[in-house]
Write a protein that binds this DNA or RNA. Sequence first.
DNA 1: CGTATGCTGAGAATGGTTCTCGTTTTAGCA
DNA 2: TGCTAAAACGAGAACCATTCTCAGCATACG
Lengths: 145, 145
Amino acid sequence: MAPHAHPTDPSDMPLGPRQRALLAVLRAANAELSGQELHERLRQSSQRHGLATVYRNLRLLQRSGLVRCRKLPNGESVYAPLERDDHHLTCVSCGHSEPLPICPVASGGLALTKVLLQGFKPLFHTFEIHGLCRSCQQSEPLAHG
Amino acid sequence: MAPHAHPTDPSDMPLGPRQRALLAVLRAANAELSGQELHERLRQSSQRHGLATVYRNLRLLQRSGLVRCRKLPNGESVYAPLERDDHHLTCVSCGHSEPLPICPVASGGLALTKVLLQGFKPLFHTFEIHGLCRSCQQSEPLAHG
DNA sequence: CGTATGCTGAGAATGGTTCTCGTTTTAGCA
DNA sequence: TGCTAAAACGAGAACCATTCTCAGCATACG
Ligand SMILES: [Mn+2]
Ligand SMILES: [Mn+2]
Ligand SMILES: [Zn+2]
Ligand SMILES: [Zn+2]
């Protein structure tokens, strides 16, 4: 086994300085950040990034297996470092989303006991696995579609 | 236990004819449908629905616990009847999304064996529970925010 | 230097979804 | 069956996060 244990072996794609900056902000943050929020935080500290660059590198970081993202009901995407493992209860009515301290993948058992739901009434769940499909692992495409 | 076993007891909100039509198309379909696709299918069969009406009733059906939705990486939302329980493997590179025949909630065990992944390389997963938060269960709001 | 290659970012374009608001339908009642 | 208030509808405009365009800039290398 290799000395490092990151997914998609990040060593094979060295990470530019902008990507390191993005990753640093994400890791420093205590919550998921949207593209716009990241852009904002980078305006203040360190050097300015263009919005296009933020999104571009966010996509690359995602492909490298360093960053994950989920889409909020209002349409915006929020990002977090992959090593942070959090899930949420999201209300289909008001869109409010609060932490859910359980992960069906980590815990072999998955106990969705009522205590954890704390009055939240689940209507449906989403369990998606994002990654690289077979063909994209072979070629190294940038095309989206 | 009540004679019917639907979530959020649909009997307390009778469902208008447009909502029944939407639900029928969703149940007849063999895959998730986007708002646009639903609008299209309703143009052909039965009566025409305006696009706004499609989205409006989709939201209501979701609140009633009859329909669920997930957001594709390209931004569009796809809908399915709640009783259909399917998940997907989605590629962060090309966006392609294929069925994943496993559900972490139903199966107590959750065996993400390599056989199921079939060469797909998972980078991260999403497990979200959507439903009604406490405050929204009390009041019956229509506001979105 | 000279050139090839890739990254950057201001601004324009995109496109799914939501909003607006006048019209149409429904519901309740006499 | 008429009559009115409330609710649902829908064409088109507005929204807005994200992506695209493309000229300018950085870096590598002989
Ligand atoms: Mn997890
Ligand atoms: Mn399931
Ligand atoms: Zn709520
Ligand atoms: Zn792919």
